[in-house]
Write a protein that binds this DNA or RNA. Structure first.
Lengths: 154, 154
DNA sequence: TTTTTTGCAAATACTTTGCATAACG
DNA sequence: CGTTATGCAAAGTATTTGCAAAAAA
């Protein structure tokens, strides 16, 4: 069974990756290259373990912690991102339709209630995948408070 | 400093909670009541630890694992939900605007690319909280494959 | 050669589970 | 009373970290 992980990364993507690494003072190591290629060519939203298994095939002694470290680095460089939220679970009991603004710096979660006219509709193509029970819309960025904090520090 | 956890739960909410518990054969224990009240009245999207601390004030010997267990139960009953995603991190390197359909049963993540006309706009009120760097829109439900599986089992 | 990165192992964070006792209905 | 839920302690996952050796610039 082929879990469709293949397809390949373009030369430009790889160049871009190297350029960005260098621009941030990060060395272009074979581990980083392989890990980036794996995520970039995958269509399966792999977790760290999955990346580890895949990379291990061509590089038998990578370690899982290098995968974790590299994924974090790539994320900081903006070359890769996390699907959804993660880490610890947070709960809500407000079933009125609303969205969240999550601050990437302090982690604060703000509720955003849409004005009557601009509530989100489920696009019809989504229904092809299954029946939607819940919509989760999350905006992320630097919150106003952290923006101020950052300015103060300059 | 008051982290605005208060405000109170309505009598109807509490009645509803009790009714639903009973309907599902779950006992209405003081722990469940307190934990539900805490989440329902909170505006801060608390994590398990936070619920634990809060509930402990009025009920000094609740245990953290009861909080975890109860939050899971309440979630199954549909009285509470998780904000965002959780558990393990999954990565993506496709920066073309797209959304995800996540199957609540098998965990599969499907990409959904919006048609040109129906791309999501950032509602203006969101910008009040901060500058949006990333949008994460996730639909969840039972995927087509799991729907079939479920039918088969009957 | 200097600094960064890696692999290893150990630590940490979050969450779940087994079991005897306590509590609900 | 019978069954379910709780608290405790211990086990699991997911992820992070300290450190010496190895590799990049």
């Amino acid at each position: 069974m082929n879990t469709q992980t293949s397809c390949g990364v373009t030369a430009e993507q790889l160049e871009n990756f190297k350029t960005i690494c260098k621009a941030h003072g990060l060395r272009v190591t074979p581990q980083r290259v392989e890990i980036f290629k794996m995520v970039a060519q995958s269509k399966e939203h792999p977790d760290a373990e999955r990346v580890f298994e895949a990379v291990r095939k061509t590089m038998p002694n990578v370690s899982l912690d290098t995968v974790y470290r590299t994924l974090s680095s790539l994320e900081e460089l903006g070359l890769v991102f996390r699907v959804g939220f993660s880490s610890k679970a947070r709960f809500d009991a407000d079933f009125d339709e609303h969205y969240h603004f999550v601050c990437t710096q302090c982690g604060e979660v703000y509720d955003v209630f849409p004005a009557p006219g601009e509530r989100l509709e489920v696009p019809p193509e989504v229904e092809e995948y299954g029946r939607v029970h819940k919509i989760n819309l999350q905006f992320s960025g630097l919150c106003a408070r952290c923006q101020k904090e950052t300015k103060k520090d300059l």
